[in-house]
Structures are given as C-alpha cells and as structure tokens.
Design a binder for these strands. Structure first.
Lengths: 151, 151
DNA sequence: ATGGTTCCCTACTTGTTCGCTCGGATTCCC
DNA sequence: GGGAATCCGAGCGAACAAGTAGGGAACCAT
C-alpha cells in the first residue's frame, strides 16, 4: 500500500496550481522549484494530467499550466487515479473482479471496505487541502495521536 | 495503493489457519491447494510469517503450520505488515518522516488520516473475517452500493 | 518573420521489485 | 533408517519506478 513518487508529486503540483488558480498559468519549472521536484520528471506527470483532462496548458513566452476546473471540484483521488491508475488494487486487479472461497470468503468485503475508506479520505478537494481546511471527518482521523506513531 | 500478491496470499493462508486452529497443524500443500496458490511460493510467505512470530511450524511426518496466537488477537494489518513491511508509505518513506511546504503543507495530515483509515479497516481480526462476522463499522463502509462499482 | 521561451514527445538508463521456480539441506516422527 | 514435511538460498524473466536526455513544435512580443 504505497503512494508512488508520481502520485505524491502530482498532488503537490496540483496543490500549487490550486493556490495560483486565478493568477494566470504556472510554469513547470516554477512548480518544480517550489516543491523540490525534478523539473523534467514533473513535466511527464503534468502531461498525464493534461491527457486526463485535469489541467490545461499553453506553450510559449508566458505559458504554463492551470487547472481545467475549479479546485473545489477536483479531488485528490482524481489526481492520483490520473497518474497511477486505480486507487486500490489487489494483485493488479480491482476488488470486484476477485473471488475467494472457504474461510477467505468475506475477504472480498474487507477489500471493498478498504477501498471505500480510502475513497472517503482522498475524496477531499484540492481547494480544501491547499487552504488547510480539511473536513471534520478527516481531521478527526488525524487527531488521534496514535495515528502519528509508527507501529 | 496496491495490495501485493504476497499480502493477499498471506492473509488467505492466515485465514485457513484460523479456521483450522484447533484441528492440529496444516501443511503448506493443503493451504496452497485450498486457496489456489503456488505451493513453493506460499512456503516463502509462511517463512516470513514464522520469522515475524505469527505462525509456528513443525517439520516431519505430520508437521505443518499453525497460528502462534489465537485468531481473535491477530489482525489482518499485522499479517500484511509481516510480509510486506509498512502498511502505507509515501515514496518509500513512512508518513511522519515527510515534510511539505507551501500549499502542500496539510498534505501530511491527509496522508496521516489515510493511514489511520486504513489501519481502522485492516484492524479486524482473523477470527472475525474467517467467521464472516465483520464489525459494524466495516460492514457500513461496504454496504454502500457505490463502493462496489469501479469509477 | 524572427527569437526566445515554454510545453511536448520519444527514447533511454539504471536500479529495484514481483511473482515464481528449482534444488537441496535439515528436522521430525515412526 | 526412511519417508515426509519444513527450511533456505539462489536465480530468473518480466515488469515497474524514478529519473535523464535531446530535440521538435507551438506561442508571444517585438
């Protein structure tokens, strides 16, 4: 259950774009510098986001990237899906495509619940994260001091 | 965010052991057949579980594997951690080791919340899954019909 | 129209992980 | 001792991850 570098970078770039969404386009170089990401690597990620319809771009002198939709309507989950495929998969397949037998029968339900939980958390919008105003449900999860400790 | 084959297989094997926990040791071959897993591959996984203290084993004629502790006290999360390392990591590091700046500042809180959510779901015990009696909170998550659809 | 700027695309590298197989050594009980 | 099981390590092909490199194509200002 790991978040890849691509996904992490993509979300951070999207947050930068969300913060600057009314200030004109942002250059890849500027985003890369602002977040400490390799510029060329980021370019590839932004390309995926463009193909996925999340951002738009313009070349030339004062070109750059901007969000295709308002930051309030784009979720973190969407960004991750765009660059990394399905949010959660088991053995490379999406949960509903699996089937278990014997004592493992309700394992499928557990994977589904896991995915639903993940979706709930990552359903927050870019605007909410960028403005540091996470919904109460998320804050409640992160408020438990135990959540910050490694087992 | 993918569950590896190792993790999936490990949990399924653990469930088989949970279901047979008072019926003496179970051979790797029997587990493999019961769940449709490659026998030799499973052996490696069971070896990890033994090193992690989750199962015990005995060689020879009527040897096999059994759970080291009652199935009620072993969580699915423990099994996964045992064979796959940390439950959720970002770019190979555990969330508390990260730091973000600018508009991405509260992304860390989001990752922490994500991990907390995952822990909550995967905190169920082997006994509960094997007996198909998941806690109400999990069932509630999986009850939403939308949780079963791919986006 | 020309130049500088920026995105766009393809290919390549390098290292690691995944999923799995094979062969043999060791230990156990009868 | 002998059969049956676990144990252990080596290896392997394919895929993936993270990043690098270089050039082509569009855009704008002058």
């Amino acid at each position: 259950m790991r978040i890849s570098a691509r996904a992490d970078y993509a979300v951070r770039a999207a947050l930068q774009l969300a913060a600057a969404q009314d200030a004109g386009p942002l250059k890849a170089e500027a985003i890369a510098e602002g977040q400490g990401i390799s510029h060329k690597f980021l370019e590839g990620i932004l390309g995926d986001m463009r193909k996925g319809g999340l951002v738009q771009s313009q070349r030339g002198g004062n070109g750059g990237y901007w969000l295709a939709r308002p930051a309030e309507s784009i979720s973190v989950a969407e960004v991750i899906r765009c660059v990394d495929g399905p949010l959660v998969s088991v053995r490379g397949e999406r949960p509903p495509d699996l089937s278990y037998t014997g004592p493992a029968e309700s394992l499928l339900t557990l994977w589904i619940a896991l995915r639903a939980g993940v979706r709930e958390v990552l359903g927050v919008s870019l605007a909410e994260v960028a403005a540091a105003q996470l919904p109460a449900g998320i804050v409640a999860l992160a408020d438990d001091p135990e959540a910050w400790t490694n087992p």
